[in-house]
């Protein structure tokens, strides 16, 4: 474990150097660390942000000083506290009943601007792309880019397709896409460089919902093919 500063109000706890060597194991370790730090509720810590190999710890230096930290020793104190929390007895965290979320996707060409490009790159037919895509199990590694955007592992190797060198100015909300070896879903209309192969009618991010993101780091999921009619009825 290595702890580095992200400015004067956050630390990054790095648990591993690489992610892709052991994605599941790394992700589980990140989630364990995230939950432990969350439960420890270290005074002065205001939020935590997990990502791949790290958990960022955002804190309020003024509150820590108010609580007795020496003004020139805030970082040392926080590093020590984090160390204590993570070194503590290896309590068993029950991994909440892992359910597999199902995301309905309409792969009609009207929504799938890049389906042919992905098929061409993989040298298979578009319908084979769809079958491979919906046949795989995915896991959410990280949420970022835009609110609720899930970065997914589990994409069949054959479907890995480079990003567009010139990103599109606008990708519609709900677009299901492939960027390199990763899969993802655009929760909002936004610019983007990934290959769009379908669209989900579900709202990936709703600020009125708690939690606001439909998918969260660590979740498992798969894609289910739906027709244009089902898309419309679910979209209502």
């Amino acid at each position: 474990m290595q702890i580095t500063a992200l400015g004067d109000s956050a630390l990054i706890v790095r648990l591993r150097d690489r992610f892709e060597d052991a994605p599941d194991e790394t992700l589980n370790e990140i989630l364990r660390t995230f939950r432990r730090l969350q439960e420890a509720a270290i005074p002065g810590v205001i939020e935590l942000a997990p990502a791949y190999t790290t958990v960022a710890v955002f804190f309020d230096p003024l509150r820590m000083i108010n609580d007795g930290a020496k003004p020139d020793g805030v970082i040392e104190l926080l590093v020590q506290r984090i160390g204590e929390v993570l070194a503590g007895g290896r309590r068993r965290h029950k991994r909440g009943a892992t359910h597999t979320a199902e995301i309905p996707v309409c792969y009609d060409l009207e929504f799938a601007m890049d389906l042919k490009r992905v098929a061409h790159h993989a040298q298979i037919s578009p319908s084979e792309v769809v079958d491979l895509h919906r046949g795989a199990e995915y896991r959410v590694n990280c949420i970022g880019f835009t609110p609720g955007f899930p970065y997914l592992t589990g994409l069949p190797d054959k479907l890995a397709t480079p990003r567009h060198t010139v990103p599109r100015k606008e990708i519609p909300a709900g677009s299901v896409a492939i960027g390199g070896a990763q899969a993802g879903i655009y929760p909002q209309k936004s610019p983007g460089g990934w290959n769009v192969i379908g669209r989900t009618p579900l709202r990936l991010f709703d600020p009125q919902r708690d939690p606001p993101a439909l998918l969260q780091t660590g979740d498992q999921m798969r894609f289910r093919k739906i027709t244009r009619e089902e898309f419309e009825s679910l979209n209502g």
Binding site: R18, A56, G180, G184, P191, G193, W194
Partner: peptide, 23 residues
Amino acid sequence: QPIEPIGCPSGGKRLDLVSEAVA
């Protein structure tokens, strides 16, 4: 124009880091 962070680079390209928090 915001661009998707790499997320997790595959194939270890020299200049790509695994994405992590920024502020």
